[in-house]
């Protein structure tokens, strides 16, 4: 690796709590994800009605990104931030919902609005639209978070000038169980972008 890279900011969302750069920004008493995510949306005064059409995985990824990336109001403003996300359950939360809409022939109702979310990379599309990121994006699935892989992949995108920064991490959602860690990697910063530091952030 030619040049050092750095973690510039990071966000975790789990167990009804949001932390940005290690500081708790929002928490809520025990609640369903639908209530929690709506409270987050309101607390941070997010104004983006499309949010309510998203599936849970996209909502989770969207909220974490919202707290890390600057708003891009101006569509002409270009921002070459790549998205490299991963998780364990792919889109299975929505897959199981979609499957149940076609299993019982008595209540057979396949909906395109549900079907489109039966792909994990749709959350990358949602974020790309929101932040006007016409940039590199890819979604990986691992049994568990893989810091070494994520680090190498982010670094090669930066080294080969495929991106100027990379938003990467873990976005896992299945049946009310969720955890996300997203972190922004670039050429400048203070926290070294190493396997060790990514592991610490994930813990």
């Amino acid at each position: 690796m030619a040049n050092k890279t750095y973690i510039q900011s990071f966000c975790t969302i789990e167990e009804n709590q949001i932390k940005v750069n290690g500081k708790i920004l929002f928490e809520k008493e025990q609640s369903l994800f639908s209530d929690f995510s709506k409270s987050v949306y309101q607390h941070f005064n997010i104004d983006y009605p499309k949010f309510f059409k998203m599936d849970n995985l996209s909502k989770l990824a969207f909220l974490a990104t919202e707290l890390l990336l600057e708003k891009t109001e101006n569509e002409e403003q270009e921002n070459n931030t790549a998205l490299v996300f991963s998780n364990k359950s792919s889109s299975l939360d929505t897959d199981t919902k979609y499957q149940s809409s076609i299993t019982d022939k008595g209540s057979y109702y396949p909906s395109p609005a549900v079907f489109v979310y039966t792909l994990p990379n749709i959350c990358l599309g949602e974020i790309s639209i929101r932040h006007q990121l016409k940039s590199e994006n890819s979604f990986f699935v691992f049994a568990q978070f893989n810091p070494l892989f994520m680090m190498n992949y982010a670094n090669i995108l930066l080294e080969k000038n495929k991106a100027t920064s990379v938003l990467c991490g873990w976005v896992e959602y299945f049946d009310e169980e969720y955890k996300t860690l997203l972190y922004l990697v670039g050429a400048e910063g203070e926290l070294e972008h190493s396997e060790e530091s990514i592991k610490k952030l994930y813990k």
């Binding site: 489109v116 790309s128 006007q132």
Partner: peptide, 10 residues
């Protein structure tokens, strides 16, 4: 290269 449209999900 693998670049998103940032336009529409479907």
């Amino acid at each position: 290269g693998s670049i998103n449209d940032a336009n529409h999900i479907s």
